[in-house]
Amino acid sequence: MTDPKRPRDPDPLADDAFDAALGARLRAGREDTATLSAAVLSRLAQDPRQTPPGRWLTPAPMAAGFAGLMTVAGVAGYLWVPLFGAGGEDAILAAALGGLVPGGF
């Protein structure tokens, strides 16, 4: 004899029926795929190799782009300084020290 106070195990059939009814409601009015298919094929016809621009505006690609630009700037800086010889380094040092002096120079 079962204990009436004990909670009943969930009925899998009831869950399946619930899921089927909910799925039918959710998909109602969205079954026609002809317009979706036409829209996708039309966009493909315009440019088959296109990449949605929004894909590159997510945090990871933007961070990678920023890191890449910083690296390029750093490398360019190291390449640029020797072009002026020792005098170029002195000028940069003087400018850096000048920023520390009140009033600057």
Partner: peptide, 12 residues
């Protein structure tokens, strides 16, 4: 074939 996939998974 893309249309076939759209027919299968598009509504969902």
């Amino acid at each position: 074939a893309l249309s076939r996939l759209i027919a299968l998974y598009g509504p969902g």
